[in-house]
Write a protein that binds this DNA or RNA. Structure first.
Length: 513
RNA sequence: GGCGCCGUGGCCAAGUGGCUAAGGCAGCGGAUUGCAAAUCCGCCAUCGUGAGUUCGAAUCUCACCGGCGCCUCCA
């Protein structure tokens, strides 16, 4: 098994990946608080860790990938009051939206999505244990974690107990110190609540992750992920709760993805800076409606417009720890590059009669080893496959991997040209097939090209096919008669309809841009 | 104020001590084509600035300039 290296926020270095239990990996990713529609920023973590899981699975690990849903929280309550519907209704709607968006971005590796409201027993038991051990105290129905009792507090984000201010100086009289944080909050009149030893109330924000990760992945699991903005206070507090409770590390590796920034605007998507814009309400800013007011539309519409695969590729083109400047022109640019792949896949199908999308990707790294011999194409394919894997081994460098994928396309096209595979019907296609299978294998790790694209002609595709054949036949006739004025007119007019013709040996192909 | 990140060709973006600084988009030249499209070949950067460490730095150190994040809910 090759060595995978992971950047650990805890140590601020890349470390060799060694799971707690050999062969098995537990990943916990902080998911959304579902008080509003998801925005682009909510998709980054899932896409990245979905890819991480794919790669670890490819390397032979059995991966359990958990993404939690926070479905009880102040903002959900506020929203339910505003809309006059229950908190569950609010959550249900936004979970549906979230799942819809994830599936369109090809995120299908999540093993389990626990909800806070479904783990109330575990949450309460966790808090009880912290109170018993003296790390938490009850105060007028609330329960707080006492930060001063944890002498390791601050180790993730490198800050001292003194410097962690807590709730912006607005210290509740119920707390002993400003940086103590709530594990349990007593309910006000009419708020949703659960019975507990302290009060009818609800959990604080951080505790659900400690309780649920323990319940599903155990006291110490392998990878804890989330956006960079969650390091403090959320992850710092999770560590405090879990490690004080268990006396052992919560997670071996803490991985944080970089944040998205909306292009030409201050601040990140849905973030503080946007909310400071007075032309938008706070809820709009936080929900992704923010971007709608800037003319970009909601996330579901954005995905519809740009294509989930294009967006996924756009995100994976850059290293996961980098900040990404997000804009539609940038996605479109990435999508242009992706077309090169689709053209090769079509070319492959014309030559072999087989669809790229019917190839079953290798499940394991060892399955795809190439015995290149002295085959020029396979030697090149092997070289770029090795380079791809080497880059992915190094902290999941998907951007570097993408470049090798482009190289593979180049060497395959070159080989097809050189060996005239499109003209020569008796050519040996063994190497070509293996090369394409390698592209299938490596792109599947990134979760792209998983399904054949829908026909650009949509539902009328059969009729369009027939009409196009008609036009192409007429044009072929004109060309045969050297009537290039007519043939060029046809091509130009089709061009105006965004249809491009490609004259190949003996036939003419077309596609809709 | 505290903690931290970033600055690579026109744009996006890998690389973080040593072969000719990946790849994509755009552009230019060539092969191919009736002309195109597609494909292939070639061209296009010395790595924010300055100093230092080193046989050797885009990669390490320091200073400066510029951009950004967290410290309050946030993927």
């Amino acid at each position: 098994m090759s060595t995978i290296r992971v950047y650990n926020t805890l140590s601020k270095t890349k470390e060799e990946f060694q799971p707690v239990v050999p062969g098995k990996v537990g990943i916990y990713l902080c998911g959304p608080t579902v008080y509003a529609e998801s925005h682009m920023g909510h998709m980054v973590g899932p896409v990245i860790f979905d890819t991480v899981k794919r790669y670890l699975s490819f390397n032979g690990y059995d991966v359990n990938f958990v993404v939690n849903i926070t479905d009880v929280d102040d903002k959900l309550i506020k929203k339910s009051v505003e809309r006059g519907i229950s908190m569950e209704e609010v959550a249900k709607e936004n979970i549906a939206d979230y799942l819809h968006n994830l599936s369109h971005l090809g995120v299908d590796q999540i093993s389990e999505m626990p909800k806070a409201t479904e783990h109330m027993g575990n949450i309460i038991a966790f808090i009880e244990s912290l109170v018993e051990k003296g790390f938490a105290y009850e105060s007028e129905g609330d329960v707080y974690f006492e930060v001063g009792k944890d002498n390791e507090y601050g180790k993730l984000t490198n800050r001292s107990v003194e410097s962690s201010q807590g709730e912006g100086g607005q210290m509740s009289a119920r707390k002993r110190a400003t940086n103590d944080f709530a594990l349990w909050k007593i309910a006000k009149e009419g708020e949703p609540s659960w019975k507990s030893p302290w009060s009818e109330g609800r959990p604080g924000w951080h505790i659900e992750c400690s309780a649920m990760s323990k319940a599903i992945l155990g006291e110490t699991f392998d990878i804890h992920g989330g956006g960079l903005d969650l390091t403090f206070p959320h992850h710092e507090n999770e560590i405090a709760q879990s490690e004080c409770c268990h006396g052992s590390p919560m997670a071996k590796y803490w991985m944080h993805n970089g944040l998205l920034r909306a292009d030409n605007t201050a601040g990140k998507l849905g973030g503080k800076s946007d909310r400071e814009n007075e032309s938008e309400t706070a809820e709009e800013a936080a929900s992704g409606k923010m971007s709608r007011s800037k003319g970009a539309g909601g996330l579901a519409e954005l995905i519809e417009r740009q294509g989930g695969e294009n967006i996924r590729f756009f995100l994976l083109r850059t290293h996961y720890r980098s900040t990404i400047l997000f804009s539609e022109p940038a996605i479109e640019e990435a999508a242009t590059g992706l077309e090169t792949f689709h053209r090769l896949f079509e070319r492959y199908e014309r030559i072999t009669g087989e669809s790229f999308f019917d190839i079953v990707p290798n499940a394991l790294r060892t399955d795809g080893d190439i015995d290149a011999g002295d085959d020029e194409l396979l030697v090149a394919v092997k070289k770029h496959r090795d380079a791809y894997l080497e880059k992915m081994d190094d902290d999941f460098n998907t951007g570097g991997g993408v470049s090798e994928l482009f190289e593979l396309v180049r060497v395959v096209n070159k080989s097809i040209d050189a060996n005239k595979l499109e003209e020569n019907k008796d050519a040996d296609l063994t190497a070509l097939k293996q090369a394409i299978a390698t592209i299938r294998e490596l792109s599947a790790i990134l979760g792209i090209f998983t399904n054949a694209p829908e026909s650009a002609a949509g539902q009328d595709s059969q009729l369009v096919d027939q009409l196009m054949q008609l036009v192409i036949d007429i044009r072929a006739n004109a060309r045969a008669n050297k009537d290039f004025a007519t043939s060029d007119l046809i091509r130009d007019r089709l061009g105006e309809l965004s249809i491009t013709l490609e004259d190949r040996k003996g036939e003419t192909g077309w596609r809709i841009e």
